[in-house]
Design a protein around this nucleic acid. Structure first.
Length: 478
RNA sequence: CGGGGCAUAGCGCAGUUUGGUAGCGCACAUGGUUUGGGACCAUGGGGUCGGGGGUUCGAGUCCCUCUGCCCCGACCA
């Protein structure tokens, strides 16, 4: 029961990167396109994104945000107003220089992110303290001319949501930044079953133009970290560059305080790399476009079996996301493999034997465990099974994360673990950028985040030996 | 952008050393038998051998060049 059922997928342990690409192609999540660095998200992959959109959008609405849409093109002059921001994004901006045959008077950037154009509009819209806060979100595509790409994790064009808010005080902006980080944590942990580490980015790693960047960091199956979502407190950097001012209650003209936050289709890559196994994708029920699939085992009594399968399908379809695989050209075994590859959380088998006993067989994708359930109890059992899978997948991933967080006391130990085991390394750090840089240069690991924590432990910076109370996470990352 | 590898049917490959009729497995189509972990038989369709240029009577094969993809670094969600 454990291996060799799916020959088309390279085993994870043999070549993790190849395994990842195999799963994407075999599960029909995406395909390569004729455009360098750009992929096609196929219907099955896109339906996962649609579920993410639903689940996140509901949370954004619940926290008072409204959706809007801003242009994909940004005039060069507008992009250049915030110095740090331009410098950060300049190397990966795509430019439109012509409209038809006419050369444009001013080049247009294809948005790498929308702070600049949104800030331009905010400066027109915001006049009074009564206009604040502004709480907007945009679902769109962005383009970053990346040098090396990988499906979902890093593509030249990708889909995301970007929240952009404006507030009347630092405290309020900070509160919003942390609120949305918590929304992301809740979404990723509850709905995607992926445990995260919440924290703040170092000065070197923060978003270009931000005051502070908060992050949720996750760990992939090969021991590399992945930034799963970020929330930025932009301070007044953009407000000053784009002249976003309002007249406050006290009659004084003041700059607004801003935030921005985003998650992307990269999260689909995270689901694959955190949960997937040698048989393919494994989807947490809450994000699965198909939560259960009915595979009828037809044989000689095909009509009876199919009728029963259809009857069960029509009852369940109002309750969960379910599909009936009544294709006659494939054998049950073939279908089992196919749906496992696609990560469907539960398979329902119905065959002649089951009909005789008024039962069905439930098989869970996360553990492979089979249970026989009487037909009358099917719905409640199925619902509790889905809930159980959701939690079990989180627990499995959490266990893996915990096993792969290692605390080190010195740089030698650090290097050894990065080379042999990867994962997150917890270490004391003196908050000096040079020590951080040295670690990056000598090991390839970066400072992923400074975790939120109420405990303070004193120790020595693993690079310079200076006494410090700060413990941070390092890892090799995607 | 540096280092390495690969490119022949939808996919995986052989053929390249030694130039001489484009092959195999899977997938696909049709018909039949099957169906509780990738069934079988029969018949059939599908190729500018990644693109361009060159050498040659003749190039998948030799030479030059461009492009794409994968892996490892640097840069990034």
């Amino acid at each position: 029961m454990d291996k060799d059922f799916v020959k088309e997928i390279t085993p994870k342990t043999q070549d993790f990167s190849q395994w990842y690409v195999d799963v994407i192609l075999k599960a029909e999540l995406a395909d390569y396109s004729p455009v360098r660095g750009c992929m096609v998200i196929k219907p099955y992959g896109y339906s996962i994104w649609e579920k993410m959109q639903q689940l996140l959008d509901a949370r954004f609405k619940a926290t008072g945000h409204k959706n809007a849409y801003f242009p994909i093109f940004i005039p060069e002059s507008l992009l250049q107003k915030e110095a740090e921001h331009v410098e950060g994004f300049a190397p990966e901006v795509a430019w439109v220089t012509h409209g038809g045959k006419e050369e444009l008077a001013e080049r247009l950037a294809v948005r790498p992110t929308s702070e600049t154009i949104i800030c331009h509009m905010y400066s027109k819209w915001i006049k009074s303290w009564r206009d604040l806060p502004v709480l907007l979100n945009q679902w769109c595509n962005v383009v970053r001319w990346e040098k090396s790409t990988k499906p979902f994790l890093r593509t030249a064009e990708f889909l995301w949501q970007e929240g952009h808010t404006a507030h009347s005080s630092f405290e309020e902006a900070e509160e919003e930044t942390l609120r949305m980080l918590e929304v992301y944590r809740d979404f990723v942990e509850t709905d995607l079953s992926i445990p995260v580490i919440k924290g703040v980015k170092s000065e070197n790693e923060k978003f270009a133009g931000a005051l502070k960047t908060y992050t949720i960091e996750t760990l992939m199956g090969d021991g590399r970290a992945l930034q799963a979502g970020t929330s930025h407190n932009l301070g007044q950097h953009f407000a000053k560059a784009y002249d976003i001012t309002y007249l406050d209650k006290d009659g004084k003209l003041k700059y607004v305080w801003q935030t921005s936050w985003g998650v992307t289709t990269r999260l689909i890559g995270a689901i694959i790399m955190v949960h997937g196994d040698d048989r393919g994708l494994k989807l947490p029920p809450k994000i699965a476009p198909i939560q259960a699939v009915i595979v009828p085992i037809m044989g000689k009594e095909s009509e009876t079996v199919l009728n029963k399968a259809q009857e069960i399908y029509s009852i369940l379809k109002n309750e969960i996301l379910i599909e009936l695989d009544d294709r006659n050209e494939y054998t049950p075994g073939w279908k089992f493999n196919e749906w496992e590859m696609k990560g469907v959380p539960v398979r329902i088998e119905i065959g002649p034997r089951d009909i005789k006993n008024q039962q069905v067989v439930l098989v869970r994708r996360d553990t492979g465990e089979k249970t026989v359930v009487s037909e009358s109890e099917l719905l409640p059992r199925l619902k509790s099974l889905l809930a159980d899978i959701q939690i079990n997948m989180f627990n499995q991933a959490k266990e893996f994360l915990n096993e792969n967080i290692r605390e080190v006391k010195n740089f030698d130990e650090f290097k050894q673990i990065i080379n042999e085991k990867r994962g997150f390394i917890k270490a004391h750090w003196c908050k000096n950028g040079e020590c951080e840089q040295k670690i990056k240069e000598e090991t390839g690991a970066t400072l992923r985040c400074i975790p939120f924590s109420n405990e303070t432990t004193y120790g020595k910076c693993i690079v310079c030996n200076k006494e410090t109370d700060t413990v941070v996470y390092f890892a090799k990352s995607y």
